[in-house]
Design a protein around this nucleic acid. Structure first.
Ligand SMILES: NC(=O)c1ccc[n+]([C@@H]2O[C@H](COP(=O)([O-])OP(=O)(O)OC[C@H]3O[C@@H](n4cnc5c(N)ncnc54)[C@H](O)[C@@H]3O)[C@@H](O)[C@H]2O)c1
Ligand SMILES: NC(=O)c1ccc[n+]([C@@H]2O[C@H](COP(=O)([O-])OP(=O)(O)OC[C@H]3O[C@@H](n4cnc5c(N)ncnc54)[C@H](O)[C@@H]3O)[C@@H](O)[C@H]2O)c1
Lengths: 228, 228
DNA sequence: CGAGCTTTGTGAACGCGTGCACGAGTGCCT
DNA sequence: AGGCACTCGTGCACGCGTTCACAAAGCTCG
């Protein structure tokens, strides 16, 4: 283990932007572009040029002054830094509405995150095939995770079952979780959790709308928060 | 109605946490809790107590020292600040895999964001009913947005059509967009855009996985080891 | 071969958000 | 009534991230 090489602390803010650069670079490569400036990359990425340069500088000095960055090489470097030089199989917990949409979506496999397995607690869901993968019982999670060497789990269960799903994933050996349920998961230290909460996103938009219009109502009706 | 009260600039970071507090408060209320401390709220929300207090202080001084916050009243205040005292109808553009899952999901309506309309460019999709809403042609967007007073649009089309979808939404009068397509949308100033990119989330998880394991491959494939 | 243009890489200043500590206000109990 | 325990509200310092400006480096062309 070389503590110097892998211990480079890339700021979180930069890590969250690298995937965006990566996707743009891939598109540009497919368009035949083999060199790109920080200016252009910034324009396509919706950020400013100095930020792009600083972000990329954390990877090393892979640009050429007066020219720009070699697209193909930069793609490789970002992939290497993000750990995308190999596939990361994922397991989806919950074969409901959302789980089915995710399983049927090919975009994950294309980006290196093949859906290696789907599990559900509902016996009537087990056995059906979604996106080429058969739904299996949730009890088989430990064997599935071990045999397929899965590190990343996706929680797509109702909120009431999400903590249970997360506990099972952790117990099975998963170390990263992407959570779609609208609750805060409690996990042991060392387990990485990211959440995607669509209602939160809409509520943030609502704030700015309300701010802009000064509170003018599009629909005249009161609401109250509810939970199960 | 407060005249100049609406011009208080709440930090973005706080705005993104308020929906989390709101959901927790709703759950606690349903559990019969009528008063809550910043400590408890912090615990449930996965943050620390001073942050909760500072966040809530932007709304005003609605707590009682020595006691805590009155749940019901705090819910009302957060809803007011976020503009959730009335419904915000949304329109979904793209009735595909994801659009159908979103339409069939009741969670939006419950939280004040009813799916008022779904549009698609594909004639074969038009006319079908998803989650109680009939899919309509994308050309009718202007009339739909105007007649139903819609401010928020959801882009659920393939990436190649996302910019077109956004342009149509903006032209129709929508001022906030939630984008699920993995591209950076270009919109006029004053239009608020938030994106939800699942692949990006997975790639961020991948980074931390790779960092933790030092690059060891879970899948025995493409093990082009990193030399020193 | 050197002048001039282009673009990267980065040190430094700035600003925002976070964490901390503590004063101030409130309720309860004796 | 007074003391005590509790919790909010907030001023302040710190750290991270963003932004700027500029020197260093490379390319082109006369
Ligand atoms: N559908 C959407 O568009 C959408 C949008 C935003 C958020 N969400 C969130 O995603 C989650 C799933 O939504 P959905 O619409 O797919 O719900 P769903 O009810 O359609 O599906 C949930 C599935 O999880 C399974 N399940 C329940 N408990 C389980 C457990 N302990 N272990 C394993 N599986 C279990 C159920 O059998 C069911 O198949 C919810 O938390 C929801 O809030 C969904
Ligand atoms: N399905 C998922 O689970 C998932 C997950 C992550 C991201 N996404 C993203 O969400 C988007 C939609 O994914 P999907 O799986 O639903 O795709 P899809 O192909 O199933 O559906 C896209 C729909 O958009 C319609 N459409 C195309 N161009 C349009 C236009 N100009 N105006 C209006 N409608 C138009 C199509 O007719 C189709 O019905 C994609 O950008 C995808 O990357 C999907």
């Amino acid at each position: 283990m070389s503590p110097d090489r892998n211990r480079r602390p890339i700021p979180d803010a930069t890590v969250s932007r690298l995937p965006v650069y990566l996707r743009i670079l891939g598109e540009q490569r497919d368009l035949g572009v083999d060199s790109i400036s920080s200016d252009r990359l910034a324009e396509l990425g919706g950020v400013n040029a100095p930020k792009v340069r600083k972000d990329l500088s954390y990877l090393g000095s892979y640009g050429t002054r007066g020219v720009g960055y070699e697209v193909e090489y930069l793609i490789f470097q970002i992939q290497r830094e993000l750990g995308l030089t190999h596939d990361w199989p994922v397991v989806i917990v919950g074969a409901g509405n959302l789980g089915q949409a995710l399983a049927g979506y090919g975009g994950f496999g294309e980006r290196g995150f093949p859906v290696a397995a789907i599990v559900d607690v509902d016996a009537s869901k087990v056995g059906s095939v979604l996106g080429g993968t058969r739904v299996r019982p949730v009890d088989e999670l430990p064997q599935i995770v071990r045999s397929k060497r899965i590190n990343i789990g996706v929680v797509a269960t109702p909120a009431s079952a999400a903590q249970d799903a997360a506990d099972r994933l952790v117990a099975a050996g998963v170390t990263s979780i992407l959570n779609f349920a609208p609750i805060v998961l409690t996990v042991p230290a060392g387990i990485e959790v990211r959440k995607v909460d669509l209602a939160v996103e809409l509520q943030i938009l609502s704030y700015y709308e309300q701010r802009r219009t000064g509170g003018a109502a599009p629909t005249a009706r009161a609401r109250s928060a509810s939970a199960s």
